[in-house]
Amino acid sequence: MDSFLLGLIAGSFVSIGAYSVLIGDNPLSKFTENLYMGILGGFIFATNWNYVRTSAINPVLQGNYIFVVAVILCVMLFSRLKIEWLWLSRYPVAVTVGAGLGLAIRTSVMADFLGQINATVLPLNNINNLVMIVGTVTAAAYFIFTAQMEGPYKYVNQTGRIFLLAAFGVTYGQTVSFRFELVIGRLVDMLRPEVALYTYAMLLLVALGLGYGYYTKKIKWYSGR
């Protein structure tokens, strides 16, 4: 059996473990969740270590000593593990948050604030433009929490809410489709002709195992609806 097919079968097995949580929390699903966290943790650790090694440690070893500062800041971050030393970790965090906020603010003004306002200044010559202008203004005004809900503002608020609900409704419809696509993506691999038999066999095994566990009350049956 080649490693590709073995991989597909292994993937199918662990997927069944993950899906078994739909019946209710059970030992197989908990095993799978912890396995997932462990491997993902290891993967994140190794790949990020590789980045730090190639981008900070190697340059220092090659004589680019400015990166000593980066290495020191990284080491300081680990002081969060001990509360007495936590103050040391504030320096790398300050660098990250300061740069992150600065970079976000400087372009958010142009891209998100002015860019979107510019795009809303439209001629009132068709229904789509009217919807866009009224919707944007009222939806943005809905987030003014300091104004009293009375007078004309009450109607602005109510109109804004309708537009926001339309936005949430559209997102909800799209999310439902997205979640189905996720299941289908997994099932396509699990039900490949060369893997399907293994999937069915594993499914039967899990059903028998869990059935026995629930029957003998060794696994608690989730009775909520």
Partner: peptide, 15 residues
């Protein structure tokens, strides 16, 4: 992904 499309429609509408 499908669920995020509505979030980005303002960027598409604005060009």
């Amino acid at each position: 992904t499908t669920n995020e499309v509505p979030n980005y429609t303002p960027y598409i509408n604005s060009g």
